[in-house]
Amino acid sequence: MSTLVKTHFAGPSYLNGFFGKELFNEYNTPAFSGSVPAVNVIENQEGFRIEVAAPGLQKGDFKLNLEKNQLTISAQKEVKEEESNEKYTRREFKYNSFQRTFTLPNTVDGDKIEATYNEGVLSIALPKREEAKEKPARLIEIA
């Protein structure tokens, strides 16, 4: 006689690894000069979305790199300040930068990741693989 065990792939034990720490575990401590932008991670049926609040930056300031299942989000912006008066000229060059690396779950389809930047928010869409998407319940007929 065999026993049927009910398993939930999205049950608490599976989610503890995700939500117990952070949904997408950061690989390193953020490396930055200045402040680190706030990050939101949102999940829906189709996948995940990472939102990075980065006002003052432009689309070209960002670099996204995916290597294996490590997504690195980085940005660097050069800020030039110049002050002149009759006796001297002062110039300062500052570089504001940050880098965050996230370990993505295996359910993400890395070939379909897309990013947009709009009104100070970098939004990265991380779609789930088809086989990882939750399927609706179906009735199995008995032959």
Results as ranks from 00 to 15, higher is better:
Lys68Ala: 15
Gly56Gln: 14
Val108Leu: 06
Pro12Phe: 07
Phe93Gln: 15
Asn16Lys: 10
Glu22Ala: 08
Asn25Phe: 00
Glu114Asn: 09
Ser123Cys: 01
Pro55Ala: 09
Arg90Thr: 09
Lys68Ile: 05
Asn85Lys: 12
Tyr27His: 05
Val41Ile: 15
Arg138Gln: 09
Ser35Gly: 06
Arg129Met: 13
Asn69Asp: 15
Arg91Ser: 10
Asn106Asp: 15
Thr29Ala: 12
Glu82Val: 12
Glu26Ala: 07
Ser35Gln: 07
Tyr117His: 07
Lys133Val: 13
Lys6Tyr: 03
Gly56Thr: 12
Phe48Asn: 01
Ala137Lys: 03
Asn85Cys: 03
Asp109Phe: 02
Asn106His: 02
Ala75Gly: 01
Phe102Gly: 06
Ala10Val: 02
Tyr27Gln: 15
Asn65Lys: 12
Asp109Arg: 02
Pro127Ala: 06
Ala38Leu: 11
Phe19Thr: 08
Pro127Val: 07
Gln70Val: 13
Asn118Leu: 12
Lys80Asn: 09
Lys63Cys: 01
Val41Arg: 13
Thr29Glu: 13
Arg138Glu: 09
Lys21Leu: 11
Thr103Gln: 10
Glu82Lys: 12
Thr103Tyr: 01
Asn25Met: 11
Leu126Gly: 01
Thr107Leu: 07
Pro37Tyr: 04
Gln58Asp: 14
Ile42Val: 15
Asn65Gly: 02
Thr101Met: 13
Asp61Cys: 08
